[in-house]
Every structure is written in structure tokens, then in C-alpha cells.
Design a protein around this nucleic acid. Structure first.
Lengths: 219, 219
DNA sequence: AAACAATGAGACGATGTAGTGTCATTTAAG
DNA sequence: CTTAAATGACACTACATCGTCTCATTGTTT
């Protein structure tokens, strides 16, 4: 209905006055949470002002305070809301271990998730609960998925390799991403990297022996 | 000479006035950098005030501004100063691969380095150079050390495993540390974890075959 | 000894921002 | 239709903090 200025660079925005309809009311909170992520990613938690956050969602400060109490409340609500969608869609978990690994690599290295991770790390002192939520919905769930697939494909004896595998899937690349040193990988690069990691743990050939010489995957 | 209030909680501090001696002058900058780390770790970059930073070093704001220009300058100087000492002392690099790995694990998971890492990640947008400096003096150097030891102990064919090994050495534990979810490991836990990682990559037995079932290392 | 440099102490101005109050406007609810 | 609720617009208060300025004090330099 309204022009959705999701990118939301300017602080000013024209919206009609008065009490919103029930549908608008429902959509408004989601809109605020969504645009708040963009603002926080671009500016960081501290430097982002409430006016910026309000302007990005085309509401006024009053509405922000009415909905979330204060800036902390908005940040908390935003992270918790996103945590639900952080992990991969479970309904797609029918592929091979390789494809699952590749999808995890791609997703976890995306600009959005890296930025969110960075925000939560930065504010983990002030919001320890958010750190727990993000981890349990992200890393922990991904490792569980990997464990299920490993058991199905390689046998239960290899199930404990899920966590090391996950560590390899992120590894140095992910640390460089958190520091802002590398761009996000393409889907092809993610797949290539995932295959290399499976090889290093000998998970691509459960009976074979010698670890392969590693080849650089992306960048 | 002076009572070293390195913990530096209170803002007020008694120090004699006037121009400092040459020795004091030399010691003062180091003192400021050292106490600034404690303050930034405890409060974060944004919330830390210049007065806190000055009080912790028992100097006044004047001195901070005279030495470093502004808050950004102090932060930059501090990180660059610390980056030099981030990696392990090279003179101790005569042990086994196992002991090197354990020392890396212990150091990189320490409260100090995790906190520094967290700070630089949080401010990587505003200070991209610091991210580069920290990474090149930290991760990159550690990986080089591992590569040298691997070549010496396991042969040149395994040298490419240095980066995956480093990834395993940090892995899930380090991400949990960044999020503030776990305490720092003890030296014994670090060694145990390092051995498990070497086993996962079959680096503890260069001719053997089957990956061992992984055992939890710490926590 | 005299002039100069560096600092502590602390006040001060300027600025930015969180959060609130007021009034007009529009829709929801009864 | 009437009343209440929610919101936009925006002024306004309160407060924190950056960075500078002045003056007294002490070491350095010549």
C-alpha cells in the first residue's frame, strides 16, 4: 500500500496522520524491525539514532517508543525476531551432506548474517541474552543438522565430526568476514569450500585414508 | 614509582603537577595505552569516555589529547601497539606441533585477546585498517607458524593443512568466546583441545587412516 | 637564574541525542 | 454518531560528552 522505502536512507518520510487501520498496525511493527536491521547494520548500535530508525520505517520517534519502550528494546526485539530465521529452512533438509554444507556456508557468510553476528558480538556485554539466542538458533542448530546428515550418510561413528566440520566450514574465512576483510562468497565458492572441508575430515569417503592436500577455495 | 592503579575504576586520581621528568614522560604513554585497553575491554569503544580513559592512567584529558589527538587516535594507537604482541613469542617456537597448537589455543582464547578481537570486530567499519593489522599480526602469523611446524614434522605435503588446523583450534569454542558465552580455557583444556584437533586432521599420525571419534575437549 | 615546556585541575562552550509533552488528525470501537 | 485510541509533527527538556581554555605548578633547557 505504502511506498516501501526499505533501503531508507533519508530521515524524512511522508505518511498520513491519524490512527492506523488494524492491518497497518500489524504491518508497522514488522516494517520497523526490518528497517531497523538495515540501519543498525550500516551504523552500528551506538551511532544509530532513534530518529534514523524511525525515519527508515517512516514512523516517528513516538511510535518507536510506544512499541518498544526504548532503543535497547527495539534492538532486542529485532535480534530475537531475526534469530528465528537465522538458521536454514528445515524443509529443505533433504539434499546431500555436501549440499547442506554448501548452503550453510553460503548463508552464514552472507552480509546480513555476518553483520548481525558482528552487532551481537559488539553488544554481547550489554545484551548477553541476545548472544545466547543467536547462538542457539544459529551455530547450535546448524551443527545439529550436520550431525543428522552425517549419521545418515556416513554412520553414527562419525556423528561427532559435525562440530569440527562446522568449524571448518566457517574457519578463517568467517573470521575475515567478521573483520570486514573479505566480500561474501558466491554460491559456487561456498560449494567449493564445503567440498574441501568435507575432504579434510575424510567425510567424503568414509573408508579412505590419506588426507587430501588442501586447495584454496575462495579468495 | 607511582602506585599502579591498573585496575582503574575511579575517575579521580592523585598525581603531582608540573612537567614530568624524561623517564616519566616515556613511561606515561605506555601507561596510557595499557590502561586504555582495560577500559575499552570493560566498557566498549563507544561508551568509554575520554575522562575514564584519562582517569585510568592517572592523567588528565589534556594529556590524552596532547598525545593522541582524540579518542579515535588513542584507540588506533592502542590496537596497533597491541597487535605487535598479539602473536606468540617467536623465540618459543622450538617445541612440538602439539605444544605449539596448545599455546596458540590458550593465547587466542584468553580474555584479553578475545576482548581485543571483539573490539576490533565491532569497530571494523570505522577502523578497517585496524582489522587488517590485527589479522595480519594474529591469525595470519599463527597459521604461518603452524605451517612451518607441519612441514618439519609431517612433510611438505601436509603443509596446506595449517589453515584448516587453525580453524579447528578456534572453531566453535572461539565463536562462543566472542559471544561471551564461555569462560577462557585453562592450559590443560587448551592442550586437550589441540590434541583432538590434530587427531581430526590425522596430523598426529601422518600415515594412519581412520579419523578418530571426537571427544569433547572443554566444557 | 631565567625562560620555556608540559602537565594537573577544573571550568566552559558546543553539540548531539534520548526521551517526553502538546496539539492536530485520522481511524477504531461502542 | 460519539468517544477513545493511535499517530504525525515537532518543540522541548535533560543530560552526557567531546574538545578547548585558563591558570597554577613543576621540570627542562640555556
Amino acid at each position: 500500500m505504502y511506498s516501501q522505502v526499505t533501503s531508507a536512507s533519508g530521515p524524512a518520510a511522508a505518511r498520513k496522520r491519524g490512527r492506523p487501520t488494524a492491518a497497518e498496525r500489524r504491518a508497522r511493527e514488522a516494517e520497523i524491525l526490518s528497517t531497523a536491521l538495515a540501519v543498525f547494520l550500516r551504523r552500528g548500535f551506538g551511532p544509530a539514532t532513534v530518529e534514523e530508525l524511525a525515519g527508515a520505517a517512516q514512523v516517528t520517534k513516538r511510535t518507536i517508543y510506544a512499541y518498544f519502550g526504548d532503543k535497547d528494546g527495539l534492538f532486542t526485539a529485532m535480534v530475537k525476531d531475526l534469530a528465528v530465521t537465522v538458521s536454514l529452512d528445515a524443509s529443505n533438509d533433504h539434499g546431500t551432506l555436501e549440499s547442506l554444507a554448501a548452503r550453510i556456508v553460503f548463508r552464514v557468510h552472507s552480509d546480513e548474517l555476518v553483520g548481525l553476528h558482528r552487532l551481537v558480538i559488539a553488544e554481547s556485554r550489554r545484551f548477553p541474552e541476545l548472544a545466547r539466542v543467536l547462538h542457539s538458533h544459529g551455530d547450535a542448530r546448524h551443527i545439529s543438522r550436520l550431525a543428522e546428515h552425517i549419521r545418515a550418510e556416513c554412520g553414527i561413528a562419525y556423528q561427532g565430526l559435525a562440530e569440527p566440520l562446522f568449524s571448518l566450514l566457517l574457519g578463517e574465512r568467517h573470521r575475515r568476514r567478521l573483520l570486514g576483510l573479505d566480500p561474501a562468497p558466491t554460491a559456487a565458492q561456498a560449494l567449493s569450500h564445503a567440498c574441501a572441508c568435507l575432504g579434510e575430515l575424510a567425510l567424503d569417503r568414509p573408508v579412505s585414508a590419506v588426507p587430501a592436500v588442501v586447495t584454496p577455495t575462495w579468495r
